[in-house]
Write a protein that binds this DNA or RNA. Structure first.
Lengths: 255, 255
DNA sequence: CGGTGCACGGTACGCCGTACGGAACCCTGG
DNA sequence: CCAGGGTTCCGTACGGCGTACCGTGCACCG
């Protein structure tokens, strides 16, 4: 825990993010390198989760001693910052997208969801208030703003819309990731989980006290074969959010 | 890390949640008790964060030995489950709320935000797919469904709307909590943080390459005195989400 | 060819969750 | 009144973590 980011010296962090560390290049050949460390760390985090990401494991993956990592990276927190910016670099950012601003935002939402699915640890790490200001994060911010540029919103409104969409997607992604990894983590499918809990719950839960929960819960369970269907939730929510934004855009352009 | 929930034996977990553990009451006086442990754990997590929540610290808070806790609670994961359900019990659930379904949903959103602000650790713990099925969580689910009962939605649609709203609120709350605790955690105000990063960023960031990000980022920074204003973001997003739901309800009731 | 600065990593410290087994206590059955 | 046994309580120990500190040896420059 205490797994956030950006506590280190800003100069060191930004130098790392933008790779402006003056590689001396004079002496010993740099066997390891920041990039290889970051790649290995992302592999570990993808495969085993952020909780299993340790400096020892990254070093082992690279076949070097644990402490050697500290030659290239000030600490785990800064390493995670660089991992995050690196992963954001995977986002495709096509220039021509059909469907106007709504089509562009929809694509952004889907690509972000796919990214978070590939790298679930990003959701436990990303910060809204003090993001690691790396090149890829800035490129992403610029790209997303351009999706709503020139449609009648002022600068602050553009920022608000992009922030809302990103917030929505990361929430939905959290649900999707959790649903995807629950069986693998625990070795128990949703169905098994439900059947294990049902008998005790039946003893203890009185449907007459909570009739609506009982009715809707049963309907949802039957429809999704689980308490929650992440794909359905994502699609439903995305359309509602875009509808809400559309109403806002309409009101703004109507003066 | 690995700080999720609900890995234990369902029988033991549910017994804990619903307090159906057959207290023998015959032998040694139970000096400690689940409730006192949960209260102490919540105090620690509120004050120092989930990362600082340890069994040793909870025991110390109670003035007992660490291992004594394991008499009442199977492990840390189950303890966190009970903490979560207990905290949800703090939500007020008034029956008469003005403003129809929209007024009711708006109140739910605000009360949930306030709850997460009081107990930020909840955001790192709550699960959509396999929630700890305690009495307070079920009561919350029932209450929220009743806010949208009888307005023309079917059961699945009611569930989707409630899920969307809860997802939105927890995302916004994450931003708010992070913004609130960033200064305390790091001893650096937003302004100081910005002034520390600005000179290096100026060296490395080319505004001509990302003109929109530069323009909007500057406007937002000036308006909020930070990269992000959680209150503004919450209000803006909440109205958009409710507008989107309103459009959906209108479409459904128009057949 | 000697000197120097860097890459690399071994050891150790203080945290964590919790398995294990022992000690102390109190209620009950005789 | 006492013996037995179930419970509560907890000391110790193990294997993990991040990383501070410091030693070693190599590769290059002069």
């Amino acid at each position: 825990m205490t797994e956030y980011s950006s506590q280190g010296d800003p100069a060191r962090s930004l130098a790392l993010l933008w790779r402006t560390g003056e590689r001396t290049g004079r002496k010993g050949k740099p066997e390891i390198g920041v990039d290889r460390i970051v790649r290995a760390a992302i592999e570990v985090a993808d495969a085993e989760g952020l909780g299993a990401l340790s400096m020892r494991k990254v070093a082992e993956q690279l076949g070097v001693g644990t402490m050697s990592l500290y030659t290239y990276v000030p600490g785990k927190a800064e390493l995670i910052d660089v991992m995050l910016d690196t992963a954001y670099g995977e986002l495709p950012m096509p220039e021509e997208v059909p469907g106007g601003w709504r089509g562009r935002l929809e694509l952004i939402a889907r690509e972000n969801l796919a990214l978070y699915r590939r790298h679930p640890w990003m959701l436990q790490v990303s910060s809204l208030t003090r993001p690691p200001l790396g090149p890829n994060l800035i490129a992403k911010y610029d790209y997303e703003l351009r999706a709503v540029d020139g449609i009648g919103l002022d600068d602050l409104e553009m920022d608000s819309v992009v922030t809302l969409l990103n917030g929505y997607v990361s929430g939905a992604a959290r649900g999707a990731v959790e649903a995807a990894q629950a069986p693998g983590d625990t070795g128990v499918t949703d169905e098994q989980w439900w059947y294990a809990h049902a008998p005790y719950l039946a003893k203890v839960f009185d449907p007459r006290r909570y009739p609506v929960a009982a009715r809707v819960g049963a309907a949802a369970g039957e429809a999704y074969n689980a308490a929650y269907d992440p794909d359905q939730a994502f699609e439903f929510g995305l359309q509602r959010v875009l509808d809400g934004i559309e109403a806002f855009v309409a009101a703004r352009t109507a003066r």
